[in-house]
Nucleic acid binder design. Structure first.
Lengths: 359, 359
DNA sequence: CACTCACGTGGATACGTTTTCAAGCATCTC
DNA sequence: GAGATGCTTGAAAACGTATCCACGTGAGTG
């Protein structure tokens, strides 16, 4: 356990000042002669500049933070891989946190990153804009991926009691009028994806199409509503929390309460998984009894029988692009990237068959 | 973008010295009176100690590193979730790196963590012991998870030419005699898991059982060899690299070259996925034509039809335990944790049927 | 009452780096 | 040849924290 060489050691060994060493290693100007000397000595001492010193000096940690709801969800795994790939090519460390879809945990993790002086992060947000305001106010460059934070409820009338409360932490009540926090983002074209799927199902003759949503699927639900057109049968839109259990419960409940539905689009791969499981449990055959299209393409979608028809979104690319965006945040243009989706038709959708019994 | 308060600000506002503030916040001794004052002021200023200053001062970064081959692999996702859960409860940041199973990338990532002065890490190693020697020599506390680094090839005869080469970086050639680097670890009981699976297949009448292995599956292969007993049909043991393509190729190749096999155990979920795909492509029915048991229990194992019989290993626990181990590294006892596996019988294994055609 | 002892406290230092600033020096121009 | 100009260089000052050490004050004891 030998101790690492410092810049001072290199400077002494090379017979130059520390400033020169720093310059050479940071690509600053130096005479070829000294440059060579310093480089040689540094190599020989196996010197690696300590990120600690540098970070303190420039008052920020290199690299970036990454917040996802759940690494067990294959899609977020893909997204994370994309981020890590980009970061690796830049030589940057990535601090990863899993929020479990819980705004409170998310808030804690943001605080932790703040403490670490991580000033760049990409996030699949769980909380609303109020959760994220502190981070952005603190000067963090935040890029949202996969979805945007929901709009916090506006409290337009800051009563005296509220003001009283705020005095506790010494903040001026009127500081932030809760504007819609503008941050770059990279998301999939949910609207087009859902619309294509719904049209596809429509083309197969399906009329009663259900939507199985999870947290953060607001845009997908909206797109679904728009695609099916009015009147929307509200009972056919059900939500689950993030957990697999909840997803299963929602799917099973949907199938049981509305045996007349003939197709369902699942808002994410966990929901899709739940739908397949619930259908099987209730002896509904796919696609004979019910057609299914799932958001997210994941390797195991092909394993199901029948293989699942999916709305593919480029998870890895999404992560990579987001990381690029957060790194070159100087490029202020081209914010709000929208990635294309693609309907991958496999075998989980079939033509609508009128129910067997009379009606 | 208001700038954060420093310990100095707190000290001034509270009318005490910085040392006192530091003590109070670090849980050191202080009179109740001052403690209260400092705490109040700190809260009011929304002071959060900067990890940068602290890290530099104590010459180490808090938190830990985590190196896995691929976050797209559900098992590593589970493992990562476990690590993150433990770290979160400790309030520690986790720097995650994805090695892609490539020792070179792994080495680079280790270097990056070294640079960050991360002195604790948990890793699913890709490289051999030589890859990890530098990290451990540098004083890192490394806990291996899921598997151990393979033993580097011993070069027992350090010829003069080798010594010459080593002079280049100024290292003494005889420094590290390549001892088997002892680091704590937490792995699954591969031996028992594989043995149980093989016995189960044997009990179903299978005699020609194949093993589909990937990188890092050394212990599983060894266990397989032991379980099937001699003579081992070497053709029935095939390997893939980490990628899904390679896994598919290996599986397809196996099925084609040895149509007489009646069961296969896949060494990991990616291999299992490949086996299902390849079998389907070759019109082999599971379990009618070939029985399949897969290492790793993953949510989608139940989605296949038939649902996959698996050797379940507790991925999340593995990560959690590893993180515990690396955090409380003072507890020198209880290194090398072995977690139990469980054969979860679903529907992918059936009784052996003698081949239809005469033989 | 003097002396000791324990404890609370604050000044000073070190951690390793980047960056500013001024100085040194050689070259170029008038 | 003198002044200006450009380039290279090193000393020094931060960055925010934890910790050593010395100082002062209080209580407790002889």
């Amino acid at each position: 356990m030998e101790k690492r060489a410092t810049i001072k050691d290199v400077a002494e060994a090379a017979g130059v000042g520390v400033a020169t060493v720093s310059r050479v290693l940071s690509g600053g100007s130096a005479s070829p002669r000294t440059r060579e000397r310093v480089l040689a000595v540094a190599a020989q001492l196996d010197y690696r500049p300590s990120a600690l010193g540098r970070n303190l000096r420039q008052r920020r940690t290199g690299g970036m933070g990454l917040l996802v709801p759940d690494l067990t969800d294959t899609f977020y795994g893909q997204l994370a891989e994309g981020v890590l790939a980009c970061a690796r090519s830049a030589g940057d460390p990535v601090v990863v946190g899993s929020t479990g879809g819980d705004p409170e945990q998310e808030s804690e993790l943001i605080g932790m990153l703040l403490e670490q002086s991580v000033d760049r992060m990409i996030a699949v947000p769980a909380g609303d804009s109020d959760t994220w305001a502190p981070a952005i106010r603190a000067g963090m460059t935040v890029v949202f991926a996969d979805r945007l934070p929901s709009q916090a409820v506006q409290d337009d009338d800051p009563g005296v009691s509220v003001a009283d409360l705020m005095l506790l932490d010494g903040l001026a009540p009127a500081a932030a009028p809760a504007r819609p926090l503008d941050a770059p983002s990279v998301v999939a074209d949910d609207r087009a994806g859902i619309r294509t799927a719904v049209r596809y199902l429509r083309g197969l003759g399906h009329r009663r199409i259900a939507f199985l949503g999870g947290p953060g699927h607001d845009r997908r639900v909206a797109a679904f509503r728009e695609a099916v057109g009015s009147p929307v049968d509200e009972e056919l839109i059900v939500f689950a929390t993030g957990s697999r259990d909840s997803a299963y419960a929602a799917a099973a409940g949907l199938f049981q309460s509305r045996p007349d539905l003939s197709a369902v689009v699942a808002g994410g791969n966990v929901l899709g998984e739940a739908a397949v499981l619930a259908a099987r449990e209730l002896d509904l055959r796919v696609p004979r009894d019910v057609s299914l299209v799932m958001y997210d393409d994941v390797p195991w979608a092909e394993l199901c029988s029948p293989p699942l028809t999916v709305i593919a979104q480029p998870g890895r690319d999404m992560g990579y692009r987001a990381a690029e965006l957060v790194l070159r945040s100087s490029t202020r243009r081209l914010r709000n990237v929208v990635l294309p989706t693609e309907l991958v038709i496999r075998g989980s959708c079939g033509p609508h068959r009128s129910p067997e019994g009379p009606r």
